[in-house]
């Protein structure tokens, strides 16, 4: 399985990769992108099985990225990893087609809870 991690922070992308490993969800190919625009390119190039995206990014935000994917008919499973987990943003994410929202800061347990059903 291939996972695309989209976050403008390299530090956070590394933490997400490490948390996947700590959650026992290692062994997957990981591809990285620094914003939604790079994410669109990475989806087209690498055909990931899952996208984990930040929300608040320069160039193209996570919700714009998700909207563009769905507008192009791309149905790749998509989840947000963001510091903004308000009910209104969770609702926007779900309406846009996201499967889940993991709020930063997170734990390996929160990753497992959201990703186990997706990575079966």
């Amino acid at each position: 399985m291939r996972i695309l991690i989209v976050d403008d922070s390299r530090v956070m992308r590394q933490i997400v990769i490490r948390t996947l490993r700590q959650a026992g969800l290692d062994g997957h190919d990981v591809v990285e992108a620094a914003n939604g625009r790079e994410g669109l390119y990475a989806v087209a190039q690498h055909a990931p099985d899952l996208v984990l995206s930040d929300w608040n990014m320069p160039e193209m935000t996570g919700i714009e990225f998700l909207t563009a994917l769905r507008a192009n008919g791309q149905q790749v499973p998509f989840g947000f990893v963001t510091s903004e987990g308000t009910p209104e943003m969770v609702s926007r994410a779900e309406q846009g087609g996201a499967l889940f929202v993991i709020t930063k800061p997170f734990t390996p347990e929160s990753f497992r809870a959201q990703l186990d059903p997706v990575l079966v």
């Binding site: 530090v11 608040n56 320069p58 510091s83 903004e84 308000t86 209104e88 930063k104």
Partner: peptide
Amino acid sequence: ELVNMIGGNIKSLLPSGSTLGL
């Protein structure tokens, strides 16, 4: 990233409709 997480979670304690900068 640290201030982004702190700010994002403080924003969650404020009335809805707020947005977070970079």
